[in-house]
Design a protein around this nucleic acid. Structure first.
Lengths: 230, 230
DNA sequence: TCAAAAGTGTTCACCGTACACCCATGA
DNA sequence: TCATGGGTGTACGGTGAACACTTTTGA
């Protein structure tokens, strides 16, 4: 029979968004050679554990969170020395969460868990910088052809929140009128009858919500979500 | 230290195209429980072998081919019983090759290696049917936003070849004039001064070639390849 | 001269883009 | 009344879509 001496891990790049800033979740190691340094949440999988469950477990254990969106990003196994203890192949996952929904809670192996603005992430251990870079690209491109932005926002949000999210993540200006026109033309965002005002002044705005059911219906009819601007 | 009892394999979905038909490469097992049944080319990786090298090695060993295009497709490790001998996690790769460039040559573990038209693939072992399905979707969508079709054709090809490739893979009719106009507008396909005729009759056509260098240049200038039709 | 495949332009409709003013609220 | 953010419509140009005849070759 085959004999292999390779371990399998999962890691997650978890994005959060709040008030014009995109964040990534990192964990401070408690033990081992990399103690005190920052890495992505993740760890070794159990023998009878599906990959996806391993990610969800680690996110719960290391930071106390459950994500809104989770998909496989890619498997890192070409550099046989990416972990210098022994060979580890890591399956990286891409995740989105609304930071408001959780209070980070470092647990078990983790000394600390923290949101870092995407541009202020400390040097991460292993090849986790590469993973973040890849995930960031995926986020940017996916935002344009799949309605995943809503997984970063509250269930009910102002149009300006959605618009700022796109501006922030895509790093470009967007025309408010054209943006609203296009989003509404899809029919997957519906207006609630609630009105709120944020901050000290300004006209209150209507709250909107993402109609996931409608979106799934449209998908069956060959609908293609697509937000791109000059 | 961590103890895991999981093996890691790679598998490849290799697409070939010839005369209006899309093919997938499959291997007939020589040994083991699945002897005689068809599976995707692949196998266990070596302890000190990068994943990508493992795929290339297996393709050479099992079918005697070297591909034009290779990228990671995804990792299959949620079904812990996808291999009923013991737990195997497989990293699937997506590959393109011009079948004309090679004579398939089953080697070592393989009893036979064969091209199957995408619609006539026999039931494959493990979860390889799922892999083919996923790869097929990837091929279809990628064809529209990345110039990978050229990796399935000869270095020099007729415009009608390219057009038929798109028709075949995307399973839709394409207006010849609009297709040619759009492809040529990108400036990444250049006309050679060779003229050939295929078959017994009809006007001979000019040969064209893909200008990869030009494409890479354009990428730096934010060029976006995009072929979509009604 | 016929059959088969290559080559070629124009028109129209729609959508993406640019652009600026009024409204509601609290201080 | 002022500052702040919310809400709205139109005109133009470019691009995708539809569409048919001529050319070159071998039989």
């Amino acid at each position: 029979m085959i004999n292999q001496n390779i371990k399998i891990a999962v890691d997650a790049i978890v994005f959060g968004y709040e008030k014009g800033t995109l964040y990534v979740l990192a964990i401070q190691q408690r033990f081992g050679k990399l103690a005190d340094s920052w890495v992505l949440p993740g760890g070794f999988i159990l023998d009878d554990e599906p990959l996806i469950n391993a990610v969800e477990r680690e996110l719960k254990e290391e930071a106390g969170i459950a994500v809104n969106y989770l998909e496989q990003l890619g498997t890192f196994g070409d550099d046989v020395n990416r972990d210098d203890r022994f060979r580890v192949i890591s399956v990286a996952y891409f995740a989105l969460v609304n930071p408001k929904n959780f209070v980070l809670k470092a647990d078990t192996d983790a000394k600390d868990a923290k949101w870092f603005p995407i541009n202020e992430i400390p040097k991460l251990g292993f090849d986790h910088d590469d993973m973040v870079k890849l995930a960031h690209q995926r986020l940017k491109s996916k935002l344009t052809y799949q309605p995943i932005g809503f997984d970063l926002l509250d269930a009910e949000f102002l149009f300006s929140d959605l618009e700022n999210l796109y501006c922030t993540i895509l790093e470009q200006d967007i025309d408010r009128r054209n943006f609203r026109k296009k989003i509404l033309s899809f029919g997957i965002v519906k207006e609630t009858n609630k009105v709120v005002k944020i901050g000290a002044s300004g006209r209150p705005g209507k709250l909107f919500s993402f109609d996931k059911h409608k979106y799934n219906q449209l998908l069956k009819e060959n609908f293609q979500f697509d937000i791109r601007f000059a």
